[in-house]
Amino acid sequence: MLPVKSLYPLDITIAAVFLALIISAMFFTVGANRGTAYAEAETAEGVYYLPLDKDGELTVHGPIGETLIRVKDGAAQIVDSDCRDKICVTMGQISRPAAWTACLPNRVFLRITAKGGRNSEEADAGAY
């Protein structure tokens, strides 16, 4: 092996700086509550997820017809549904964790998961 005396202070500094960077990367990736919140739609067909940080649309089918869910600018909304009263449409946008909206006649329940919930439920508790 290389005798330590052939290393210069600068070598040790470089090694230490990068090691510190790696260790801080470790704390950052483990500890940080990163990721986005999701719009979670419970429907007759199953559960759907849409990330809130990406605009998108989703059509789901329920007992009385179709329900159109839209995610735009970090907020989710039921924009159309084949129900009579359209209460769900008038409920407007939701974006805060644990906020919800629903189209009960078509059995669609839309809610926002906690930030960093990613592929787990663990963060939901903190939303209340």
């Binding site: 199953g46 759907y48 997820y49 849409l50 990330p51 592929n119 787990s120």
Partner: peptide
């Protein structure tokens, strides 16, 4: 790890 769309299977969390 970044869920998108309909859930097909749920294995634990």
């Amino acid at each position: 790890l970044t869920p998108l769309g309909r859930v097909i299977v749920e294995i634990g969390m």
